[in-house]
């Protein structure tokens, strides 16, 4: 058996987490709560060390970019959510700015990759598979039409079941492909326990 304390800790952790399959228990809970405490601390430490500290030290104090105080002050308004209820509405300011930024970005940029993908539907045509592809594509796009008009209702009644079947076949393909990958992960963990820790194989 490998007595390295870090390997021992990892082995105990592995067994504790795998025990969830049997039942949620104290050993599992111990590692679960530890992991949350750890990653919560890590996200603060990383932002502090890799981003906030260098920005304040190098850009604000070093390069004199004092205008950074404005986004800093707006960012601090987030904390009004956890302060007195009277001021919590102030948090809407940084939230609105962030959301506005994302919306503008998405209105400008998101159609480009969409068009690139869409035009592949008819970029080349001739093989029987191209016809099948387009037919399936049309059926699925039509399936996700929500507006009820007489014609859509009738057509959906005919094509709906076939389309749903096609979608499920594709879902099955994805399911089957990934299940094998998951098993190789599991075997990897067994290998760690039996070879790296217990040295049985």
């Amino acid at each position: 058996m490998n007595m390295d304390p870090l390997i021992m800790l990892e082995a105990v952790g592995t067994i504790a987490v795998l025990s969830y399959v049997w039942k949620e228990n104290a050993a599992y809970r111990f590692f679960e709560f530890t992991a949350i405490g750890l990653v919560a601390a890590h996200s603060i430490v990383q932002t502090w060390n890799n981003y906030l500290k260098p920005t304040v030290r190098d850009r604000m104090i070093g390069d004199g970019e004092w205008y950074l105080l404005i986004p800093a002050a707006i960012g601090l308004l987030y904390y009004t959510r956890v302060m007195d209820k009277k001021f919590s509405w102030l948090a809407r300011y940084p939230i609105s700015i962030s959301i506005g930024y994302s919306i503008g970005y998405s209105l400008a940029y998101s159609p480009r990759p969409f068009l690139k993908e869409f035009r592949n539907n008819f970029a080349s045509f001739g093989h029987v598979n191209d016809y099948i592809f387009l037919l399936v594509w049309l059926l699925v796009v039509f399936y996700f039409i929500f507006t009820l008009m007489k014609k859509t209702k009738k057509t959906l009644r005919v094509t709906g079941a076939i389309t749903r079947c096609l979608i499920m076949i594709y879902m099955g393909v994805l399911f089957g492909t990934s299940i094998l990958g998951k098993f190789s992960r599991l075997l990897g963990r067994y290998q760690f326990l039996l070879r790296d820790w217990l040295r049985l194989i």
């Binding site: 679960e32 992991a35 949350i36 990653v39 919560a40």
Partner: peptide, 11 residues
Amino acid sequence: FPSNQWPWSSH
């Protein structure tokens, strides 16, 4: 709790 995939999922 932070969105790190597996710690989040375990919790």
